[in-house]
Amino acid sequence: MKDLVTMDNTSNEAFKLLKQLSVHLEQESKYQPREKGLTLIEATAENDNTICPKSRNAKVEDLWSLTNFFGLSTETFVLAVNILDRFLAIMKVKPKHLSCIGVCCFQLAARVVEEDCNIPSIHDVIRISQCKCTVSDIKRMEKIISEKLHFDFKATTALTFLHLYHTIVLCHSSERKEVLSLEKLEAQLKACNCRLVFSKAKPSVLALCLLTLEVETLKSLELFEIALRVQKHSKVNDKDMLYWRELVSNCLADYSSPECCKPDHKKLVWIVSRRTAQNLHNSYYSVPELPTIPEYGYMNESESEDSCEDMSSGEDSLSSSPPSDLEASFFFDDCKPKLKCRNHLYPL
């Protein structure tokens, strides 16, 4: 079986992809959460006054829902999880601080990945996440996280390798691009991110497991051979592949089952109390009518000023009505107590 380097002698694009792959393979260990810290979290019981696997996984699902709600990319979600795990793996954190930490990781990831115009305001994130933090709490916690991670947030993650592997396979394949769905692979990766155990896997190995499992379902011999060449080039041994592939396969099987509790992707439904609904109903009738715009000629200055005043007086009542057609996920736990972020975090 030929290796990818031999095949890439005739392809400039493929050669560049393999060069990128080599660079990321060298960097991936730098951005992996400390295994010792992850092991301590795994061994923590639910009733202990520190983070346990269940609370960590629930917070990752909240991050997934926040990402969906604000319409941000999969890269933002995966990076937020990476920042969260790297921080939890080096700091002893009390459960009451986890909501504040999660919001901070989400904001830090969004600033790295998203365009400035797409980054949600901290006030909106606090309100939607129901984290019960103040802006000052968030700023103090962001400072702690930034210092502990040395302000190095742009990480090499499993999503980085998943995109590279997907592009490399398509570059060498004669099959249609629609056959191997990157969107499906990303969804599977998000499911794995919701389980702490996969933070202990090398990002390159986790991505390769997802790729090969999906190739197997497609029953394409050509794609399977290319995936094996990618494994060889990435220097991933068969023992690691078999171990993590079984865990990934079990995770995806559990996640696809109807018994699995997962973030809600249904249309957002606004629930309004009877009193609020009555106030909204009354405010509708309190909006003054706008003056009729003449079809011919133009209004004088006094008419123009009156018209502007009427529009502004109606804006408050209009803006107070919740939008009913906003599509997003809404999956959050009950309100947490207000977080105090100072002097409660201890290095492991």
Rank of each mutant, 00 (worst) to 15 (best):
N47W: 11
A253H: 09
D152T: 09
P323E: 07
D264C: 10
G71I: 04
H24L: 13
P294C: 04
R111T: 01
E216G: 14
F198K: 01
L280T: 03
M7R: 13
Y31C: 01
R195L: 05
A80I: 07
K132V: 06
S199L: 03
G314R: 11
C52F: 04
F161T: 00
S22Q: 15
N12H: 15
H123Q: 14
K177V: 07
V236I: 06
E309G: 02
P120T: 04
E303N: 14
P294K: 05
F198R: 02
E246F: 09
Y243P: 05
M141G: 01
R111S: 03
K59L: 15
K139F: 00
T212C: 04
S329G: 13
S174D: 14
P322Q: 06
H172Q: 14
K266M: 10
C251R: 02
N9D: 13
T160C: 09
V5F: 06
T74I: 11
L182A: 08
K266T: 15
L63M: 10
D316S: 12
L211F: 02
S99N: 10
E42F: 13
C104G: 03
F77N: 00
L170Q: 12
V230K: 02
L268E: 08
E46L: 06
N279S: 09
Q188C: 09
S324V: 12
S257R: 00
Y165N: 11
